[in-house]
Amino acid sequence: MDKLKGVSWIIFIISVFAIIYALIFNPADWIVYAISLVFIPLSVLSLGLISMAQGTKEDEEDKTKEPFIGY
């Protein structure tokens, strides 16, 4: 889970910088489209992965092994 959080933080910071770059520097249209298509979803998802609740360490193995069955 820490690896996931670390990767999410990095992706979130890169996305936010890209979006702010597009907001401030007003690049060519196609660059803005490319930035919005790639970095808006990445920013929202990484924000979600940063802010999500986290369970205890010992439950983690159970959760990844059998999430569909319920017991």
Partner: peptide, 10 residues
């Protein structure tokens, strides 16, 4: 849902 935990199944 956005703030609940997600796990990636094995």
């Amino acid at each position: 849902f956005f703030i609940k935990e997600t796990v990636f199944p094995k």
